[in-house]
Design a protein around this nucleic acid. Structure first.
Lengths: 201, 201
DNA sequence: CCTACCGATCGGTAGG
DNA sequence: CCTACCGATCGGTAGG
C-alpha cells in the first residue's frame, strides 16, 4: 500500500531540513548553497523549492524545531516537584543531551540567527527568552538575593548558558572526559557559585 | 612635510582591517564583500588588494591583532606576585575590557575561525591554546584537586571562557548592570565554584 | 484544472 | 590607483 501524500510531504521536508542543518553547520548559511542541499538530498533544486519557499525558511525550520524541543524539555522539568537545584541539574543534563543529539542545529542556532528575516528571528528569540526566564527563576529560587538585584538576574542566567551552550563547539568526543561528566562539573561549579558567591553591590 | 610611504602603508592597512572587522562582525565574512570594505574606506576595490593579498588575509590580521593583545595582557598579569585567585580576577577584568574595546574583532574571532586557511587558523588556535593553558594553570593552583583530574583541567578552563567570551554578544550597554559588574559576578561565581564545587569522579 | 516534479536557465553579483 | 572586466556561482523561477 502506497504512503499517503501527506506522509511523504512531511518526510521529505524532514530530509531537507536535516541535510540543510548539517551543511549550514559545516559551511555556514551563506557558505552552503541550495544546490548543495539538493545534492545531499538527491533531489533537484526545484524540488527543494517545492517544499520550502526560500532558503531562510529552511533555516527557520531547523532552528524552530530545535528550540521547541529545548523548551518542551525545560517545561517538563520545571513542572516537577523537586528542589530548584535538582531542577537545574536535570535541565543541564537535558540541554547537553539535546545539544549532542542535534549538534548541527545547535551550532546553526548559535551562529546563524542574523540570517533570519526579522519576523522569524523574533519567533526564535521569543522561545529563547522563555528558556532564559526558566533559568532566571530557578537561580532566584536557589539564591534569593539574586531577586533583590534584579539587574543581575538575566546576566546570571546568561553566564549559565555561556558555560553550556558552546560546550559542543570545543568538546572533543575522543577526549577522556565524557560530555555528561563535563555537564556535571559545569552545574556543580555554577550551583556552588550561585549559592555562595558574592553578588556585587 | 609629507608622511613617509611606510607610515602611510601601516595607517591604511589599519583603516582597512578596522572597517573589515566592523563589516565582518555585522554581516559575516561571506556576507560582507570586498566592495563593501572598499566603500567603507573610501577606496577602490583594487586598492584594497594593493594592501592585502586576499580577503582571508584581512580576516587573519583582524583576528591575530586581537588574540595577540589578549595574550600580552594575560602574560603581564600572570607574571605578577599575587595569589592565583587575584590573577584570575585581574585576567577577567582585562579580557572583558579588551572584548569591549574590540567588540567587532571579538565577534569575528568567535564566529569566523572556519573561514581562515588551515595555516592561518593554526596560528590563531596556537595563541588561543596558550590563553587556555594560562587559565588552566590558575585554576589548578586555586583548586589543586583539578590537577589530579587531568581530564577535567581543559573543560574547566573552557567553561570559564564560555561564561565571559560571549558576554558581549548578549550584553546590553543600556541595561542596568555595567559590564564590569557582570564580569565581577562571573568571576565570583566561578571562583566560589572552583574552590568548593564537587569535582565528578 | 490540480499536484508533483523535471532540465535548463534567468538576472545579478561574488572575489579577484 | 582606476575602469573594465573575467570565470564561477548565487538564490530563485521559467515553460512544459
Amino acid at each position: 500500500m502506497a504512503r499517503t501524500q501527506a506522509a511523504d510531504y512531511a518526510e521529505r521536508r524532514g530530509k531537507i531540513v536535516d541535510a540543510a542543518a548539517a551543511l549550514f553547520a559545516g559551511s555556514g548559511f551563506l557558505g552552503a548553497s541550495i544546490a548543495d542541499v539538493a545534492r545531499a538530498c538527491g533531489m533537484s533544486k526545484s524540488l527543494i523549492y517545492h517544499y520550502y519557499a526560500s532558503k531562510e525558511d529552511i533555516l527557520f525550520d531547523a532552528m524552530h524545531g530545535h528550540v521547541g524541543a529545548l523548551l518542551d524539555a525545560a517545561n517538563a522539568i520545571v513542572s516537577r516537584h523537586e528542589p530548584a537545584a535538582e531542577k537545574l541539574r536535570a535541565l543541564t543534563r537535558a540541554f547537553v543531551r539535546l545539544y549532542a543529539g542535534a549538534a548541527d542545529r545547535q551550532r546553526v542556532l548559535l551562529n546563524e540567527m542574523d540570517r533570519l528575516p526579522a519576523a522569524q528571528r523574533r519567533a526564535i528569540v521569543d522561545i529563547q527568552r522563555r528558556l532564559i526566564e526558566i533559568v532566571e527563576d530557578l537561580l532566584s529560587e536557589i539564591r534569593p538575593a539574586l531577586s533583590g538585584k534584579a539587574a543581575l538576574r538575566t546576566p546570571a542566567a546568561m553566564l549559565y548558558f555561556g558555560m553550556i551552550n558552546w560546550m559542543h563547539t570545543w568538546f572533543d568526543p575522543r577526549g577522556r572526559a565524557k560530555s555528561g561528566k563535563i555537564a556535571e562539573l559545569a552545574v556543580n561549579l555554577f550551583l556552588d557559585g550561585i549559592r555562595n558567591g558574592e553578588i556585587p553591590a
